[in-house]
């Protein structure tokens, strides 16, 4: 009898602890109302990997997969014919899964704005980034640069604006290559080279350094060709 009573007391104590803790955890803020994923879920259909990542609580891992997928997609010339129309959906899915992963906003908006000339979409993406990461000032600078180019349509003022950002303090990582590319497209090879050399002096490593060297070689070749043709 005494043994049964001890067992009953232990089980009652454990059950009470379980119920109390369950209700506390249940009463915590309603994630479904605060998380952008659930709001989006109500509005539109999501891709299967997004749902899969969510229900198995693997959102961040699925976001990593989307990130790698986005880089592969944008680097694949096969999609040039359809102007890489998957950039925006892929980036949005990635940011829904992990709204705090900044490269989605930086890279996605740069590709959309400067490569594909889809300014409004780039701004929509950055607006989302700024909403969920209000402390990240670099996103505001990206948005400002895109807005500047979009409103003005004039390279000169964009160049002046980007120069001001880059050479005066903390600059977003993707803005110097964007400025260098604008110079390259305009045939201002000396200025483009100056930016790549500036970046190499900043201690670029790995793929970044390889990319800078590749660009320097390309621009040097263009400059030589330009001189030979008497431009």
């Amino acid at each position: 009898m005494k043994r049964i009573l001890i067992h009953l007391v232990i089980i009652t104590a454990l059950l009470s602890g379980l119920i109390a803790s369950s209700f506390y955890l249940h009463r915590s803020p309603d994630w479904t109302k605060l998380d952008p994923f659930y709001r989006q879920l109500a509005r539109q259909q999501q891709e299967l990997p997004v749902l899969f990542g969510t229900v198995l609580n693997q959102r961040k891992l699925t976001a990593v997969a989307y990130w790698v997928g986005l880089l592969v997609y944008t680097g694949d010339p096969e999609w040039q014919a359809e102007r890489w129309r998957g950039v925006m959906p892929m980036t949005l899915a990635g940011t829904l899964l992990n709204p705090h992963f900044i490269p989605f906003y930086e890279f996605g908006s740069s590709v959309l704005a400067w490569q594909l000339k889809r300014w409004p979409e780039a701004l929509v993406l950055l607006r989302r980034g700024m909403e969920y990461n209000p402390g990240n000032e670099k996103l505001f600078l990206y948005a400002a640069a895109i807005k500047y180019q979009n409103l003005d349509g004039d390279d000169q003022s964009t160049i002046a604006f980007l120069n001001r950002i880059i050479f005066t303090g903390e600059y977003p990582a993707l803005l110097p290559p964007i400025l260098a590319n604008i110079y390259k497209q305009r045939g201002e090879y000396q200025k483009a080279l100056a930016i790549w050399y500036f970046l190499m002096r900043q201690g670029l490593g790995g793929e970044g350094l390889a990319r800078a060297k590749r660009q320097v070689r390309e621009i040097e070749a263009l400059r030589t060709k330009f001189r030979k043709t008497g431009g």
Binding site: I11, L14, L15, G17, L18, A20, S21, S22, Y24, L25, S28, P29, D30, W31, K33, L34, D35, P36, N57, Q58, R59, K60, L61, N98, P99, H100, Y132
Partner: peptide
């Protein structure tokens, strides 16, 4: 691991205590 930093999730001391109690009670039962 998956929810840290996501909107709507705040990790507090109360959360830590109650979730620890939840694990202990559930596993014990």
């Amino acid at each position: 691991r998956d929810r840290a930093g996501l909107p709507g999730f705040e990790f507090s001391f109360g959360y830590f205590l109650t979730s620890s109690a939840y694990v202990i009670c559930y596993a014990a039962i």
